[in-house]
Design a protein around this nucleic acid. Structure first.
Lengths: 353, 353
DNA sequence: GTTAGCACTCTTTTGTTTAGAGTGCTAACA
DNA sequence: TGTTAGCACTCTAAACAAAAGAGTGCTAAC
């Protein structure tokens, strides 16, 4: 691919930015008039013609202006766009006030992130919360409830608690329950929850010969807890923002995309795809997923102590305000990192819902 | 309002049903041809003219057919529609399979309800879960975590558990924590969580002179738990179903309605409005809320032991399959009642998320 | 290398016509 | 008196045609 000279770059940049803000194909005459380059429409026409030949511009039809190609957006994102594009004060205030509000559980933080992200970028946002499946079993304990019921709580190393109410088998005494809990705790302590599979549970079973029914339900519970814990949670924001985009004035198109976003597993796949190397922009057909190949996605992962805790993304038309989106995501990214770092895990308030 | 004779009723019913299924204004000629009444188009024309005069029909313009008025729908829902309209076997199977799937938390049940409701009625569904704010404080307890942290769990009469991780004040011993928990538990036991206000907490404070910092955070936690518990939760389903409705082919209209549904408090108000007397149909302008006055809503509350535990509703165009919607809601209603009755509260698996 | 000019293309807008559906009214019929 | 056929009339939606507007490519001149 040959290098573009500065003038071509400048013109291309203007075309892209004009198209991003108007959603209309941009023509030479208009471009010349609007931004006062000291060039005539004819000259620009020639340049545009070149840019089209080089694959940066496309023409919907002969008598329309031109629109940027995926290749053009790529160049724009990587090189042309003005990098800093700092957020305005009011933007930042908006973010802060949305977060500062009140005590938030970790889920609430993600939820708020999705909301802010969509509101500020005017696009669909997606946030994936990777449940911490490295949580390590610490102990279980029975809490008394009434004569017939008790609460089984499972405590993990990072201070998360899961609980279920169980039936106390007839004739079983508190002492026995406690003994059972101790034995099981001893046997399972130190195992990552995700590791507690049938095999290990079977081993525990043979080791602890106790009331069959209770024990079975106990194991089932522990298994369920492990499973639940490791599920990735998806938060979707601002799907209705789509309706404000000119490219989604067609109800059928909206339906198509919304149908896709409705499937949680698809969204999960979307967010999980590719390596999780910081901020990543995927433009139009660069995208592997059918159905969103006329969209762009900006994605970022956050980490805590090296491992991924979450992924956020903005999805919208290829004609997207990349600079703004990237700025917002960068800011949110830094902000969340700081929250996570500060509220280090055991201190996370885990609000039951 | 004068009574309609049988023939008028029959004709009105047919017009309504035809309009419901086609979304097109229905004309006399078509009506005569489609359903073989032994009447000519002209006769029907006369009857329709009468019905219009009586306020049951409206004409978008002179040369179009006629469409039912709110008054007509009202009559239809109250009297004209065929009552039993049982669900098909496949409908019921669909419902059962959606529920039977796997162990569900109470939230999951509501979530599934919203999903099923929207899928089967092809309209937006809303489910309001009234959190059980009659939950009664039973006791709190500290569970050890590490040297610096402990988990505070709060147990209520119905077996729900809330928890937070707290910092252990320097120098405080486990014994002291336990003592504190016991004292506080004694003082608060039996109070409904919703009742635990500043006053009571203050009383506890003066009664138990202990570590200031810990105590303050303890009280804050209890207060927060009470607050969280009493929040009503809203589950929305099938908002994208809107896009399939002919009346929502206009993106602006979709945006309008979606904007309203986006506001959780609006949805809450919608569902809370009016008395909670079983099943209730609100048609078009009967509705008090601006923005949905060209929609109809079918709403039902479920109760357990006399008090309301939840509300579900279907929202769609006035041209709605009332019979179908009502059947589905009735069925779901009965089904959920049975679930709630069976899984009586202490047995509800409360899945932490 | 840049630009003005011009013919040409294609879409969008606007206006006009036509076909179709439905109505209301009148007169005839059972 | 209720029902029906017939017909003139109204209005919309679809089809078609013409005009306007935007943009291009090319050529020739600067």
């Amino acid at each position: 691919m040959e290098k573009l000279d500065d003038r071509k770059k400048k013109i291309l940049q203007l075309i892209i930015e004009d198209y991003i803000s108007t959603a209309e194909p941009v023509g030479s005459r208009n471009l010349a008039r609007k931004y006062n380059l000291n060039l005539s429409a004819a000259t620009i026409r020639n340049e545009m013609s070149d840019l089209e030949l080089l694959g940066y511009l496309e023409q919907p039809h002969t008598s329309a202006g031109r629109i940027p190609s995926v290749q053009a957006y790529r160049l724009y994102v990587d090189e042309l766009r003005e990098k800093p594009n700092n957020l305005t004060k009011s933007d930042i205030e908006m973010i802060m006030s949305s977060f500062n509000d009140r005590q938030k559980s970790i889920d609430d933080i993600f939820k708020a992130t999705a909301k802010i992200l969509s509101r500020m970028t005017k696009n669909v946002s997606m946030v994936l919360a990777d449940q911490d499946d490295t949580a390590i079993f610490r102990y279980i304990k029975f809490l008394p409830l009434d004569e017939k019921h008790a609460i089984l709580v499972l405590v993990t190393d990072n201070g998360h608690v899961d609980n279920v109410t169980i039936d106390i088998p007839k004739g079983m005494e508190t002492r026995e329950l406690d003994y059972l809990a101790n034995r099981v705790s001893e046997l399972l302590a130190g195992h990552p929850l995700s590791d507690i599979n049938e095999e290990i549970l079977e081993a525990v079973h043979t080791n602890v010969a106790e009331d069959k029914v209770l024990f079975a339900s106990l194991l089932a519970t522990i298994r369920r807890m492990g499973r639940t814990r490791s599920k990735q949670k998806v938060f979707l924001g601002g799907t209705k923002q789509l309706l404000n985009q000119p490219e989604f004035q067609d109800v059928d198109r909206v339906r198509g995309l919304l149908g896709i976003l409705d499937e949680e597993h698809v969204v999960r796949d979307l967010l999980n795809a590719g390596e999780d190397s910081g901020l990543r922009v995927t433009i139009g057909s660069e995208n592997k997923f059918t159905g969103i190949q006329d969209c762009s996605m900006v994605r970022a992962t956050y980490r805590l102590n090296g491992h991924v805790v979450g992924t956020m993304a903005v999805l919208g038309p290829t004609r997207m305000e990349y600079s703004k989106v990237i700025s917002v995501m960068n800011y949110l990214h830094r902000y969340l990192q700081s929250i996570f770092a500060a509220e280090n895990l055991p201190m996370l308030v885990r609000e039951e819902e």
